[in-house]
Design a protein around this nucleic acid. Structure first.
Length: 372
DNA sequence: AATCCGGGGCC
DNA sequence: GGCCCAGGATT
């Protein structure tokens, strides 16, 4: 059997398998390019089970591009809370506004145009074009690279930028006439359900007969993937600043800067401390770093007790955080300005905190504090 | 080409 | 508790 026959076998059997075994997912009930676009952005780096409830809430609140375009950014961020990679949400809203203004409210159906939109890279472009418009464009994600690397025994490192190009060329050749959407979804469905990273279910695979990796007994060794660098550790101390008087029952939170890590999300005031300050015995030393830093922002605090320890891993940073309760102490701040709250600070209680978008690590701390 | 961006599941 | 998964933007 030559290469072309293997390709044809693959395309035919995969397509038939998908049409029989496809999962009934919310976004597969829609032909709305906007809804399909939302699902593809949410599905970047995020598994199906996690995305489903977010997709329902998001499309219910923003059923049309007009609704999303006109919404305040904080509300979009709040609906994205917990999903991570928050620039996806900001880019999506920006791109939808662009579609409203530049494309008359219609998601573009050409590779050139759709690729100019914020947050729409080669994968998302191919996915939306093929699924929403049935255009014969490849949509190569991690699932697809795993499936193709195994079936065709491709041993290039999939973390390399050039490997994706090889995969896209191959994936495009495989698309059956008039069935781009189903075929691309089938490729991803196979990767998710059968051709899994570990312990692939080869015995139920529709293309096992001609899978090169399977023939060689190499299915577990593929795809080849260079290991990522471990995240660098950062030691931090965070303050649960408890209000008194009119602010009884409230905690002070602040909004992060416009750019960078967790941009514009809300958080507990906290500072990075040097290594060695933040372990259990080092808490007293790190507290003074916290007090001094907040004093510079005109927030005077008197540290209280350790409340909890929290860890959070990003792809490139690991936060190791001690959380302490504090009370306000205006006298810590020189020149008596301590009672004026900087505008990016805000008091919240267990009810009003619902209005602000927090990264998961702070959400956990606040929920425990308020016994939610 | 390398780094910056979250968060969750599996064993 | 350690390992794996991984698109897009930026530099």
């Amino acid at each position: 059997m030559d290469t072309n026959e293997k390709k044809q076998f693959f395309s035919e059997h995969l397509l038939a398998w998908y049409r029989k075994h496809r999962r009934d997912l919310p976004w597969r009930r829609s032909r709305n390019p906007y809804h399909i676009w939302i699902s593809e952005v949410m599905l970047q780096q995020t598994r199906v089970d996690t995305v489903i409830p977010y997709f329902h809430r998001f499309t219910e609140r923003f059923p049309t591009m007009e609704a999303l375009a006109n919404a305040p950014e904080e509300e979009v961020l709040k609906l994205w809370e917990g999903l991570g990679y928050y620039s996806r949400a900001r880019n999506l809203q920006g791109a939808v506004r662009e579609v409203q203004e530049r494309y008359g409210g219609v998601v573009p159906d050409t590779l050139k145009e759709i690729s100019t939109l914020k947050g729409v890279g080669p994968y998302t472009a191919g996915a939306v074009l093929s699924i929403a418009y049935n255009k014969p464009e490849p949509a190569v994600d991690g699932n697809v690279m795993r499936v193709l690397s195994r079936y065709f025994l491709i041993e290039e490192d999939i973390m390399k930028i050039g490997t994706r190009g090889i995969m896209e060329k191959l994936a495009k050749e495989l698309i059956p006439e008039g069935a781009a959407g189903d075929f691309n979804q089938g490729l991803m469905e196979l990767g998710a359900m059968v051709c899994t990273p570990r312990s692939p279910h080869c015995l139920t695979c529709p293309v096992m007969e001609h899978c090169a990796a399977r023939e060689m007994g190499m299915e577990e060794e593929l795809p080849v993937k260079k290991k990522a660098k471990p995240p660098r550790p950062e030691y931090r101390i965070a303050a649960l600043i408890e209000g008194s008087g009119p602010q009884e029952g409230h905690i002070l939170i602040r909004q992060r800067p416009q750019e960078g890590l967790l941009a514009r999300m809300w958080e507990l005031p906290h500072v990075e401390v040097p290594f060695g300050y933040a372990d259990a015995s080092g808490v007293p030393a790190s507290i003074s770093v916290l007090t001094e830093q907040l004093a510079l922002e005109t927030i005077g605090i008197r540290p209280g007790q350790g409340f909890m320890h929290a860890e959070h891993t990003f792809s490139h940073i690991h936060w190791d955080m001690q959380v302490v309760t504090c009370s306000l102490e205006p006298s810590v701040v020189p020149s008596g300005t301590g009672m004026l709250l900087p505008s990016h600070y805000q008091w919240v209680n267990r009810d009003t905190m619902e209005q602000y978008a927090f990264p998961n690590v702070f959400l956990k701390i606040l929920k425990r504090y308020f016994s939610l």
